[in-house]
Nucleic acid binder design. Structure first.
Lengths: 138, 138
DNA sequence: ATTTTAGTCTATCTTTTTTATAGGTTTTAT
DNA sequence: ATAAAACCTATAAAAAAGATAGACTAAAAT
């Protein structure tokens, strides 16, 4: 399951995307609008900023805004940033690989093979679907 | 990521499947063979037994054994039993559904749609692949 | 019958991760 | 100058994961 952090990030990004025309948006506005603890959200938006996904402006009239178009922000990027690995096993993760202790040879490990397929199927969607694809259809 | 519990369960099941001919297998043997804390493994095997996946025999010559053929044990079953939901969001889980707070209407929620697809792609593999498919190929 | 073997059950403990909060600092507009 | 708003770091609280302890029950061997 995705952590609350990642879920909140998605909701915040959706809100930002749906209000691009309004310029920088206050953390407090997003928090209120999406019922997220303002301080928790603050940390999340900071991480998104440090990753180059969001930009911000301080002082009066400040707030957060998207640094890229929704189409340019793959869902996998957000998940990896805030939740870490997408794969179900460390030995099958592309970005957070770790060798498995209990298995002698990955090449003949059946678990490895199946979980690689799961990862591929998941990534095919999450890498290709972007913020644009999760905006409310109206 | 799958929890250690689920990972250990897979390794234990693999060991049991690869040693069916030897009759009931000791918890201690599996623990030693797969480097798992014996007491932790004990709990896991019990859960698998209570779910009808394993059978057991007490006293001398006792141990654990599979109640079904490896082919009849889907990977999804094990994961759900020990880890809970396979879906990435509660509002998209088939077996552990929970309504999402932040979203007004699931029918038009884009996140819901994408995550449903991820769930389907994952389940297509995990429901159809069984213990048999993760045995070491030799 | 008694002893030994091995799983059963339930409770607790420890560690790690997740979720959340607090409070001061810096930047910018007016 | 002042107020607004993001920035930053640390910490706390809660929950989940991982692991352990020990008494109990059942089966088998003797």
């Amino acid at each position: 399951m995705l952590s609350k952090k990642t879920q909140y990030a998605f909701h915040a990004l959706i809100y930002l995307a749906e209000n691009v025309d309004k310029g920088p948006i206050l953390i407090s506005e997003i928090a209120a609008e999406k019922s997220i603890s303002i301080k928790f959200l603050e940390n999340i938006l900071l991480e998104l900023k440090n990753a180059g996904i969001l930009g911000s402006k301080k002082g009066k009239g400040g707030g957060y805004y998207l640094m890229r178009t929704p189409k340019e922000i793959p869902l996998a990027r957000i998940i990896r940033l805030l939740d870490g690995p997408i794969a179900l096993l460390p030995c099958v993760s592309l970005n957070y690989y770790e060798r498995c202790e209990n298995c002698k040879d990955e090449a003949i490990c059946g678990l490895h093979e199946v979980m690689s397929k799961v990862r591929d199927a998941t990534l095919k969607l999450l890498e290709n679907k972007s913020l644009k694809d999760i905006l409310t259809r109206d």
